[in-house]
């Protein structure tokens, strides 16, 4: 019964706005994405595949996104922990104070122990004295390096991607090719499409297309990043996140690999500086 109806439905224009790839040049249709580890209980999220070669947006097709990555629990606390870790692990505090032994002078007992009616003191550089050393002051260099647990880092990325998608700040484009290397084009494009002033473009490889590299070179709030550099801090710092379709594939496959590991005891241990 259903099979009788289905071919008719396909030919009718009932489904047209949803499932056909609207390609003005008549080039090949974009294949729907096959999700790894198909979700059992959640529906895939959907996102428009857009183009980047015209200022006005053209929707090329609808893409399925894995809900474990793009619709996971938006843990703001985990996002915060990731941001804190990212700013602290390379932070070395150079604040420095001198202790009593490092302050110049103060070797002589200022006055005799007894007989003067004054408080007993052994050095004019003790922390009690004006100009004396500092007790428990900051000492340079103080490294603040620590490692966030592995799965907190993974959860940070999935939370952040989910937040970006939920707030309509995540866009997927077919590639980063733009027709000109003038900065005006990309600025106009971002303005027309209501992308936030700051945009982070994620490419699947670290060799970016020439035009967009030159165009965004002088614009400080539009940045290009390879997919291996994707991190929570940068996603938060930029208003809009623009991923290429291949970058989405890479992000999904990498994160899903870690979420579905069989052997993860080597990921859970204490971080060692010389670990591989």
């Amino acid at each position: 019964m259903l099979s009788n109806i289905l071919p008719k439905l396909k030919t009718s224009n009932y489904f047209k706005p949803f499932c056909t790839a609207i390609t003005s040049e008549g080039n090949s249709k974009i294949e729907p994405r096959a999700l790894q580890f198909p979700p059992k209980y959640q529906k895939p999220r959907q996102v428009w595949l857009e183009n980047l070669d015209t200022i006005d947006e053209r929707k090329l097709s609808l893409l399925d996104l894995h809900p474990d990555i793009f619709a996971s629990n938006p843990r703001i606390d985990i996002i915060f922990q990731n941001v804190r870790w990212q700013s602290l692990y390379r932070f070395v505090s150079f604040a420095h104070t001198k202790v009593r032994s490092e302050v110049r002078g103060g070797g002589r007992k200022p006055w005799p122990q007894k007989g003067l009616g004054r408080a007993r003191h052994g050095s004019i550089r003790s922390p009690l004295f004006k100009g004396g050393g500092v007790a428990h002051g900051p000492r340079s260099p103080t490294p603040h390096f620590y490692m966030l647990p592995f799965y907190t880092r993974i959860l940070g990325l999935t939370s952040m991607l989910s937040v970006k998608l939920a707030q309509d700040d995540l866009h997927v484009v077919d590639n980063l090719e733009i027709p000109t290397d003038e900065p005006e084009f990309i600025q106009e494009l971002v303005k027309t499409r209501n992308w936030g002033p700051s945009v982070l473009f994620i490419n699947e490889v670290d060799i970016m297309p020439r035009n967009i590299t030159i165009a965004t070179d002088e614009i400080k709030h539009m940045n290009l990043m390879p997919v291996y550099g994707l991190n929570v801090y940068s996603m938060l710092k930029h208003d809009t996140l623009v991923l290429t379709k291949t970058a989405v594939d890479v992000i999904e496959s990498k994160l899903l690999t870690h979420l579905h590991r069989n052997v993860f005891y080597n990921k859970l241990g204490k971080y060692k500086v010389d670990q591989v």
Binding site: P74, I76, D77, I79, F80, Q81, V83, R84, V163, Q167, D169, G196, Y233, L236, K237, D239
Partner: peptide, 12 residues
């Protein structure tokens, strides 16, 4: 809700 950004996140 407003856009989640560096200014408005916090730990539990």
């Amino acid at each position: 809700l407003p856009r989640v950004c560096l200014k408005n996140i916090r730990d539990n």
